[in-house]
Structures are given as structure tokens and as C-alpha cells.
């Protein structure tokens, strides 16, 4: 580029970089037009709806749902506003990471598999800008996925399950008004997005090293399973603070009444460390990638 400029010094200065917003918007449009993204988002919406209908049909307040369901699900009966939080917790174990990993796999490895990454690498766009643009697509998918679960969860909770007059009964036995309950749902949604960004950063880093999208999916889902296994081994307890998944139970804390922020904050910090490490590896690798 410098050589070109020195050869034509009289050329009027034109814009040599495309605005980042336009690039990101193009990427987001591209990501959202993929049928698999839309199918995954639809499936996520179905999770919340199915959960709500199942609970409305089988359980009721004071029924025999005394801790029979997995995790928070038993709490949803007759207490609809817990549904989005329970659904986010359920989806975070596998479905949401799968969605984000799919998007990350398509972002770099998928382009490489199609041979279209070469074109992007040759385009007069800095490699860091390329990574930012690709990340914007993945972040959009993560935010949309969480939003779909949360919004559909709130609607299903209010319409299908219902609740005590639009209020939420916390695990501590207190009753929150609609506004505060929605605030708690928003808190869990934001926290879930941060956790998903950590998954996305690692997935993008893997994606930057391979040209097979399946490798990214296998690495992320396999990694989650390995983390789960490591967390279950008592003699490896010292490893717990390093594992991303060990903080994933903290979403439940939003249902306790004087809201304990400690676990939510520490798991978010842990996720941010993963985000930083993943981004650095991705950028460094993409700087040197040539096809």
C-alpha cells in the first residue's frame, strides 16, 4: 500500500478503509440470513415454550413438584416469571453454547472451508478489523439467542404458566413486583451473554486455527463435557476456579432475595478472562493466517 502511494503521490486522498459499522452490518446480515442460525434461534424459543407448556400441564402450585424437576424447573410451577431464568439456565448447559459455537465455526473455519476466507484475507481490510467484524456477527447471534429465550420465556411464563398476579416469588420467600422481576430476568440475560461471549471467544480462537467447522463444534462441546467431568472429580477441586462451567450455577442467585452478587461477579470475571485470552489468540493467529 505504501509502495502504491509513493508511486502515485498526486492521487487525491480517498478513503482507504471501509467504515467498521458498514462491515459489521454486512456480516450481521450475512449471519442472519443463514437458515441454520434461524433454525437454532427457533429451537431456542421452543425450549422456553415447551418448558412452560409442560409445567402448565403437569405441575401446579403445591402439587407434587417438590424438587422432582431438574434444578429450577420445579420452581416454575405457578410462578411464571421464573420460567425465563430456568430456561436460560437449562439452555446455557448445551443449547446456547452450541448456537454460539456454530456461528463461530461458520465465521472463520466455515469461510476457509468454502475457500471464501482467502478473498477476505486479500481484501484491503486489516486483519484485526476482519476479526472484529467476524466477532460482531458471533456476538449478534449470542445476544439474539439469549434475547429469544428470555423474551419468549417471559411471555410464556406470563401467558401459559401464569403467576401470582404478575409477581415473582423468590427462593427466599419474598414477592417481587413485575418491574423488579423483569430486572432480575434482564440481569440473568446479561450475565448469560457474558458467559456466552467467553464460549464464543474460545470458539473463534479454535476457528482461526482450522478450516473444518466441525472441529470447532467438537472442540467447544467436547470442552464443555471435559470441564463437566473435571468438575466432578473431587481430587481436582483446586481446578474449579479455572473452569468456565463451574460458575454457571450462579444464575440461580438472581432468584434469592437480598440479591447476592458475589458469584455472578466472579463468574463474569472468569468469563472475561476467557474472552481476553480467546480474542488474543484469535487476533494473533489471524495476523499470520494466509488461506
Amino acid at each position: 500500500m505504501t509502495a502504491l502511494e509513493t508511486r502515485t503521490p498526486t492521487r487525491t486522498p480517498t478513503r482507504t478503509t471501509a467504515p467498521l459499522g458498514r462491515l459489521a452490518a454486512a456480516e450481521v446480515r450475512w449471519v442472519l440470513r443463514r437458515p441454520r442460525t434461524l433454525v437454532l434461534l427457533g429451537l431456542l424459543a421452543l425450549v422456553a415454550v415447551a418448558l412452560g407448556i409442560g409445567i402448565a400441564l403437569t405441575g401446579g402450585p403445591g402439587g407434587d413438584g417438590d424438587g422432582d424437576g431438574p434444578g429450577l424447573v420445579a420452581q416454575v410451577a405457578g410462578n411464571g416469571l421464573v420460567l425465563p431464568i430456568a430456561a436460560l439456565g437449562l439452555a446455557l448447559t448445551l443449547l446456547l453454547p452450541l448456537t454460539v459455537a456454530t456461528a463461530s465455526a461458520d465465521a472463520i473455519a466455515g469461510e476457509a472451508a468454502h475457500g471464501t476466507l482467502r478473498g477476505l484475507l486479500l481484501a484491503p481490510v486489516g486483519r484485526a478489523r476482519l476479526v472484529v467484524m467476524k466477532a460482531a456477527g458471533v456476538v449478534t447471534v449470542a445476544v439474539l439467542a439469549v434475547l429469544v429465550v428470555a423474551v419468549v420465556g417471559v411471555l410464556t411464563g406470563l401467558v401459559v404458566v401464569g403467576g401470582p398476579g404478575g409477581t415473582m416469588v423468590t427462593l427466599s420467600g419474598t414477592t417481587l413486583g413485575l418491574g423488579e422481576a423483569l430486572g432480575r430476568v434482564a440481569l440473568v440475560a446479561g450475565w448469560t451473554v457474558v458467559q456466552l461471549l467467553a464460549v464464543a471467544a474460545v470458539a473463534l480462537a479454535v476457528s482461526a486455527f482450522t478450516e473444518h467447522p466441525l472441529v470447532v463444534l467438537a472442540a467447544v462441546l467436547g470442552g464443555l463435557i471435559v470441564f463437566g467431568v473435571l468438575a466432578a472429580i473431587p481430587s481436582l477441586e483446586w481446578l474449579q476456579p479455572l473452569l468456565l462451567t463451574s460458575g454457571w450455577g450462579a444464575g440461580t442467585d438472581a432468584l434469592r432475595d437480598p440479591l447476592p452478587l458475589g458469584d455472578l461477579a466472579s463468574s463474569s470475571l472468569r468469563a472475561l478472562v476467557y474472552v481476553v485470552l480467546g480474542s488474543v489468540v484469535t487476533v494473533v493467529r489471524m495476523r499470520r493466517r494466509d488461506g
Binding site: 402450585p61 417438590d66 424438587g67 434444578g71 429450577l72 420452581q75 427462593l171 420467600g173 440461580t252 447476592p260
Partner: peptide
């Protein structure tokens, strides 16, 4: 408050009455 992974037992004493709430059983 005695938190567990997916529930909580809460004990409140307001000076005249002691309340115990179990979120799993939903009993007071």
C-alpha cells in the same frame, strides 16, 4: 438464608414470630 444449588431455606424472626420457608416444598 441457607442456600442450596437450586433452592433455599429461609428463617426469619420478626420479634414476635419465627417463620421458616422452604423453597423446594413451598411451605411456610
Amino acid at each position: 438464608a441457607l442456600p442450596s444449588a437450586d433452592g433455599e431455606r429461609t428463617l426469619v424472626s420478626d420479634g414476635t414470630t419465627r417463620w421458616a420457608y422452604d423453597s423446594r416444598e413451598r411451605t411456610v
